[in-house]
Design a protein around this nucleic acid. Structure first.
Lengths: 346, 346
DNA sequence: TTGTAGGCGTTATCAT
DNA sequence: ATGATAACGCCTACAA
């Protein structure tokens, strides 16, 4: 393992010059540059990222906090992988590495320590919970001026940098798709109300209904927990009132598929199925029988956006912006898209 | 941000003593320890992981190389998430952090640089390719004595530390399950022969057949690329010879489901479907219609094992083992399990 | 049991 | 355009 000193000697320059050449800073004579590069090459010199981080007191790592998922089974791994890839892509472009952390069930994440330990320079939180402990931790982060971004969860009344998809519009699209085809008796299987995501979907559904001069029948508003099983259970209600229901919109694909399963279990033939629309456009949607119409969420792009936000922020933008507008627009919503498949076509 | 110096002053000791207390090394008077801890607490001191890494020239990071998956869509995200969780779990237990890297399509990974840059202390490779460039890179890694572990891919003739599932046995189980029920005309839709995984599955299939005094009909050996679409295409062959086929074993769930889709597209009713067995026991298996019998692969446990191997190795084992046996047993196979669902039951 | 001091490999500042 | 050199914050002999 060649050291920088050796390179400097071989090239006949000082160590500082070696640094400058390799980091491409400062004015350097072409000749010197060549010599250094050549010596470095010859000796197979690789600068230590560790020493560099230390000297700069920057780790060069972008932290990513993954939610706790019991053996990754509760939620689909699908969208976390997508987001992670998106983040990783942007991170690489700017020369940062990804430090991935898995949240444990109980433990209240101490985000600030992560920064103080200097393990990370910025942080993306995928599994933010909506409880007071979490909120406090995030507020502290913000107060100490650490760059971070929350994905998939909105904290009302805060000015956190947030990236999410536009679930209001997404749900509206789904409902419109159904009402446009003449479906009137629409059941909505939402996720737990504690997620901002679920609340937004509900808003979107209501808007969509209103646009069609209809209203969501409260007795057709069901709640699951985003698991397939909960969809399967909801199928009981739906089966009982099958004649009063001609379409089902579920807040994610897994629940939609769960409902289909539940109906099958109860011996209901496919031709008697209501129309189905799911959400997320995960792999499962196209594998479903019948293939499931679903609201596509640009998880990959969301990951990219979140990473970019943080990287830009860190790089050089002045902390104080011209107008206070910026504090209003810390939430970034990406558009969804309805992917129509057989499950929802008359 | 309190510094160590301040803590030392407040506690009335030297900085070295602060270090010793916080790292729990060396003999320390109880009284001193108390003072230091208290001072540290009071000042909210958090040691810099960066400086520590630098001083120890150990990053404390476990590298994980993810395969290139175009937008994470080609393979199911499922098993990478599982393995990653398993790795993360064990890493945390031993105080290491996870540095996740995504491979790019063309680029030949330069693994050694990762170590030389001291970004990571050990490395798990999930997406190892079976080409000469990759092999050379891994050999160099080994030669330089860097701890690493390859998952899901076997390099014959090498003594790399490898972790995989026992695909021979897994495939044998699948075939036996079918033959035990009297299925005789079994088609096998394998993945590309270039993966050691596929080769092992084929072996297992052949063994299973032999055990039932049968042979795999070469014209019923199909090859896909592990994508759903390739399964859908294979369905053409299968549909054409439906009367000569009473069961289909696919090398992963996605292809199995793809075949089912393909048959449906061709208007073949479910009751005429052959029996189906998939592989991986991914989420998709239980969402399939009919629910898909599948060979469960313990991805999570594989991740844990790989991480443990590396961590143990680094911690303190003498590099030279007593017998050369260890070099023989560098490949670790975890058992699979057949999960029986409706798709394969008469 | 505790303090002192050298070293780790860069970056960055100041001279030159 | 380049060279010296002082940090950076911690670990770890070695000394006391």
């Amino acid at each position: 393992m060649a050291s920088r000193k050796e390179v400097a000697e071989l090239a006949g320059v000082s160590e500082a010059t070696v640094s400058r050449v390799l980091n491409g800073v400062g004015p350097i004579k072409e000749e010197t540059k060549r010599k250094v590069l050549q010596a470095s090459e010859q000796l197979g010199y690789v600068p230590s990222a560790l020493a560099r981080s230390f000297a700069r007191s920057k780790s060069g790592n972008l932290g990513v906090v993954m939610p706790y998922v019991p053996k990754a089974h509760l939620f689909s791994a699908y969208f976390f992988s997508e987001m992670l890839s998106g983040i990783g892509n942007k991170a690489r472009e700017s020369g940062m590495d990804l430090l991935v952390m898995f949240r444990t069930p109980d433990e209240v994440m101490n985000y600030t320590d992560l920064f103080r330990r200097q393990k990370i320079d910025a942080c993306i939180i995928l599994g933010a919970r909506d409880d007071p402990g979490e909120l406090a931790a995030l507020q502290q982060l913000q107060q100490e001026g650490h760059p971070f971004c929350v994905m998939n969860q909105h904290f009302a009344g805060q000015s956190f940098v947030e990236v999410d998809a536009d679930h209001i519009k997404g749900s509206r699209q789904a409902i419109r798709h159904l009402t446009d085809q003449g479906y009137r008796k629409i059941a909505f299987l939402n996720g737990p109300d504690s997620y901002s995501n679920s609340q937004e979907r509900l808003q979107g559904v209501q808007m969509g209904m209103q646009e069609a001069k209809m209203e969501l029948d409260p007795s057709l508003l069901l709640e699951g927990n985003y698991s397939r099983r909960s969809g399967q259970e909801a199928a009981g209600h739906i089966a009982n009132r099958l004649h009063e229901i001609d379409a089902v919109f579920a807040a994610n694909d897994r629940m939609a598929i769960g409902v289909m399963h539940g109906l099958r279990e109860r011996g209901i033939p496919v031709q008697d199925f209501p129309a189905f629309v799911g959400y997320d456009d995960s792999d499962a949607a196209e594998m479903a029988v019948p293939p499931l119409t679903s609201v596509r969420v640009p998880f990959y792009e969301m990951g990219e956006l979140a990473a970019r936000k943080l990287i830009d922020e860190k790089v050089g933008s002045p902390p104080a912006n011209v107008s206070s507008l910026s504090s209003v627009s810390t939430r970034h919503l990406l558009p969804t898209e309805l992917i129509v498949r057989a499950s929802s076509i008359r």
